[in-house]
């Protein structure tokens, strides 16, 4: 099956002072209809920039460059601002991390939900209102008519995020991009929102790109995974393959540094030493080499070998053996 979204060789450069930050360095991502792709990485890994590239919502002076960004067969890298505006919120929905900052505090929930539908579908006020109420019910908000008349500040964080999801789904998009949709929420609410997203995805058959730093979330919802580090995808594949046998030392390091329930007290966590490199300078070899126990001189200079298996690929000169995780 052809991918619904297919990004090839994406670069994003953000000018700062005399140079630029090379935030995304040749990223390939793709997701099929009805599937969930999780993009994992820490702050500065370029995961949000990759997502914003699809929407063409990058910061003002950022430069985007890609071989292609195919959405449903159309290369959206070639589209003008007006054509992009037609896609955004209509065929591609987006949910951001902070529901409080992405909702307008001066308008009621109803107003903001209706705007999407009226703009893209040219529907009447009453039709848009009915659709908004329907969507709030779909995302599990009781008493939708009352909620539509409320302002964002009158809602709890969990409710606001539900409203954001409802807004993203108003026009039945084929693709939903969710950038850390649950990171600002409480843990029990996080589980409820993730379940909601999964149920909606199954019911509506949409593709989801979920951006997160939480490998626990990834393991539970992803069909495919892309692990990003310093602007590159270092390991990608089906969630089953990647979690069963992570091959890149960074993926292994992330998994090991998570405290595991049931292990009790004591043992220090296996932290990854050091910090993320600066993307102001060019990194010749592997960006993770400075923090990697397996790295040698060749890793720092490059080039780095990319191994492509059937459902799994990774860029590393010294990948972990298959099923290394069980030995840990």
């Amino acid at each position: 099956m052809a991918a619904l979204l297919d990004i090839r060789n994406l670069h994003v450069r953000i000018p700062v002072g005399f140079g630029h930050v090379h935030a995304v360095r040749g990223v390939n991502l793709s997701v099929e209809a009805g599937q969930t792709l999780c993009v994992v990485g820490e702050s500065g890994s370029g995961k949000s920039m990759s997502a914003l590239s699809v929407m063409n919502l990058l910061p003002p002076r950022a430069m985007r460059d890609a071989d292609r960004i195919l959405f449903d067969g159309v290369d959206i890298a070639q589209l003008g601002p007006r054509q992009m505006a037609e896609l955004r919120g209509n065929r591609i929905g987006m949910v951001f991390q902070e529901p409080m900052t992405s909702l307008n505090p001066a308008y009621t929930v109803g107003n903001q939900l209706m705007e999407v539908h009226r703009r893209h579908r040219g529907s009447s006020r009453s039709a848009a209102w009915a659709r908004a109420a329907e969507l709030l019910e779909l995302v599990g908000i009781s008493n939708p008519e009352m909620r539509l008349r409320q302002y964002p500040h009158q809602l709890s964080g969990g409710l606001r995020q539900r409203v954001m999801i409802a807004m993203a789904l108003m026009c039945e998009p084929g693709l939903l991009i969710a950038d850390e949709p649950t990171s600002a929420l409480d843990v029990t609410i996080q589980v409820q929102i993730l379940r909601l997203l999964r149920d909606l995805q199954r019911r509506l058959g949409i593709a989801v790109v979920l951006i997160t730093h939480d490998l626990g979330v990834v393991a539970r919802v992803a069909d495919t995974v892309a692990i990003m580090y310093a602007g590159q995808v270092v390991e990608t594949g089906s969630a089953r393959a990647v979690f069963a046998s992570p091959r890149h030392p960074y993926t292994n390091g992330l998994l090991r540094s998570m405290p595991k329930p049931g292990n009790g007290r004591g043992e220090p966590l296996q932290a990854i030493p050091g910090t993320v490199p600066s993307l102001l300078e060019t990194i010749p070899g592997c960006a993770f080499a400075e923090r990697c126990a397996r790295a040698d001189e060749a890793c720092r200079v490059g080039p780095i070998a990319t191994t492509i298996e059937e459902r799994h690929s990774f860029s590393c000169n010294h990948p972990a053996d298959i099923r290394a995780r069980e030995e840990v």
Binding site: V187, T188, Q192, A219
Partner: peptide, 18 residues
């Protein structure tokens, strides 16, 4: 419920129903 909300990186377990 809090304990069930801890998502461990185990593929295939899905999301708990709290």
């Amino acid at each position: 419920a809090l304990l069930d909300s801890v998502l461990t990186p185990d593929v295939g377990l899905g999301l708990p129903d709290l």
